[in-house]
């Protein structure tokens, strides 16, 4: 789904994730990570959201699983403006990477999505417990209702280091290309 009326974005000039960014996102998600997203809502204001899981299908496709009730406004916004920001953060190290993408489409969650989300959330729950958030909170935070899950796929355009510190915001492509 193309962005409606959105001006050409320079970061969209070279779509696709570098292997380095892809490997980092996959590793973070596999070990348990916080996955959050940002879109522009119907009122042209930003909206923050939380994802249940994330899969990098390939350098030109990222798939995230969301809870529909928590993200209903956000999904409506994506229908109009398909640009999306996704940040994946490792709990113990705070290492983070942000992917900016476009062409987001809403899809039905598949059994494999649910398996991925279950696995990633279990790992994330363990990370939260290790970080002293408490088992009850970690379990509640990482729970989800499979019947409410929905998938969003988008084309990644650029990736940025988001780890707090002097290099935060540095575009990964710049170093490699």
């Amino acid at each position: 789904m193309p962005s409606a009326g959105a001006p050409a974005d320079p970061i969209a000039a070279e779509p696709g994730l570098l292997p380095e960014a892809q490997a980092l996102v996959e590793a973070f998600c596999q070990h348990g990570a916080s996955i959050i997203l940002g879109v522009t809502g119907l009122l042209d204001r930003p909206l923050a959201g939380v994802a249940l899981g994330c899969t990098v299908i390939g350098p030109e496709r990222v798939r995230v699983l969301l809870s529909r009730p928590s993200n209903s406004e956000l999904l409506l916004g994506l229908m109009r403006d398909s640009r999306i920001a996704l940040t994946v953060s490792e709990v113990p190290t705070h290492r983070s990477i942000q992917i900016k993408g476009d062409g987001a489409v809403l899809l039905a969650a598949q059994p494999e999505d649910l398996r991925v989300a279950t696995r990633q959330l279990r790992a994330f729950r363990d990370q939260l417990i290790d970080a002293e958030y408490g088992e009850a909170f970690a379990t509640a935070y990482c729970s989800f209702d499979p019947t409410e899950a929905v998938a969003v796929e988008f084309v990644p355009c650029a990736a940025f280091t988001q780890t707090p510190g002097p290099k935060a915001g540095e575009r990964l492509e710049e170093a490699a290309r």
Binding site: P7, L37, V39, T40, A48, D81, L86, Q98, K100
Partner: peptide, 12 residues
Amino acid sequence: ATADGEGTPNVS
């Protein structure tokens, strides 16, 4: 979540 003047979202 924020967005720039062109509406490109950012999240951290």
